[in-house]
Design a protein around this nucleic acid. Structure first.
Lengths: 221, 221
DNA sequence: GATACTTAGTGTTCATATTACACTTAGTAT
DNA sequence: ATACTAAGTGTAATATGAACACTAAGTATC
């Protein structure tokens, strides 16, 4: 028992991940079906207990890797939730993270995992365990806000893309439509994009220039 | 020992407070001198361990009340710091909060406490314990950013004030000067202020209209 | 009681940024 | 050859933000 705690136990500390992607023009979030009680069989955000000698960021990275096999995605701390009743068994506080991953970067899940992993559209969520609905709503709010004053969508785009795909990404996240010419002007004016020189020849129409972000940095504008 | 922790101890959880005020045209932060090891005698942010059945917000409120005797100030969660080495004794993660209090609302500290409580100007800080310098810098960055797109200064102003006082508050926090006419136009345009009808007759000059915020709400613009 | 002093209070012009809006281009499919 | 689809482009109107200087209403002083 920790000497700083007299007469009560030190709270457990977990890290929970709100892992976003966009697919089929929907903003989606990864859910895992809980194998154990409490909330057995109920969908929840992927998470896990903080390990010894592990920073919060590392723990979030570890959880990400365990569930997806992927590393190196955009990630930021969201908020820490610590209501005494949020876990029915014992006191647990959780540090929530937002992570973004392009759909194209996701490996196909192994068949054994398929049943208890799910990408759920954020506007059609199942019942969630603990306070995960609240966490998720907070994450969506933050993501939507941040999209409009940063290039955070970088984390959701493939390496190369058409400007129309970038625009659709914005529209999907903020759930609103944007003017094509104004969108292009603003995006190119940020100076964060560069032409690749390649063109996307797919489809029965004029081919589009492919762009990429000049750097991995997320900047505010 | 928590059953979820196999072979290692659950980390301690503390709440630390970055309590801001403005006095003598300086942005100041409350520091307390540590009575115990580690960092005995070194200045630190006021904080304390999270208690059983206490939410994070309540813990922050409690710490505030313990150190100042004040409740009901503006407060928001800042960030959670969890580097494994941040406490030299044992694993402790801390949830940092920002709090704002008008200088006028502070009770005079009792003489016995004076020696180990200090309002330090943020641009002339002493050496700080733990990672508190990092926490404080992060808090200052957040406060400065938030000032420019919200009415968060509400938390630092007395009930009634002259527009010139409000302007000086902004200038002190962002450490830059503002144009008087543009400032007044913008402030009044937010619709968040109302004239009280009273005038401040102090001083050998034309008396100023006293204003107050219409509501306690912090809104973004 | 005239003059000096101090802060309050007020509008306009200019530059920049944002919005609204429609047609031509370049490819594929039939 | 024609139809179809998405790519790509510019301008005018409006709104926003920035720069800027004088008059007003008190008190203090002589």
């Amino acid at each position: 028992m920790n000497t700083k705690y007299q007469g009560f136990e030190s709270p457990g500390v977990t890290v929970d991940l709100v892992l976003f992607t966009v697919n089929e023009d929907r903003l989606k979030v990864m859910l895992v079906r809980r194998a154990e009680t409490p909330f057995q069989g109920i969908w929840s955000l992927p998470g896990g207990f903080l390990l010894e000698n592990e920073s919060l960021d590392s723990a979030a990275q570890r959880v990400l890797h365990e569930k997806t096999g992927v590393s190196e995605v955009y990630m930021e701390q969201l908020y820490t939730f610590g209501d005494p009743q949020r876990d029915p068994r014992s006191r647990v506080i959780t540090v929530a993270y937002i992570a973004l991953i392009p759909w194209q970067s996701l490996p196909q899940p192994e068949s054994e995992k398929i049943a208890d992993l799910n990408w759920s559209s954020v506007d059609a969520l199942p019942k969630l365990a603990f306070d995960h609905k609240q966490i998720l709503e907070y994450a969506v709010t933050r993501l939507r806000a941040k999209v409009s004053y940063s290039n955070i969508v970088y984390g959701l785009m493939p390496k190369q893309f058409r400007l129309s795909e970038l625009q659709r990404m914005y529209e999907t996240i903020i759930d609103d439509s944007l003017d094509k010419r104004n969108f292009r002007k603003r995006m190119l004016a940020t100076g964060l994009l560069k032409e690749t020189g390649k063109k996307d020849l797919a489809g029965a129409h004029r081919p589009a220039m492919l762009y990429q972000f000049k750097s991995k940095e997320i900047v505010f504008f």
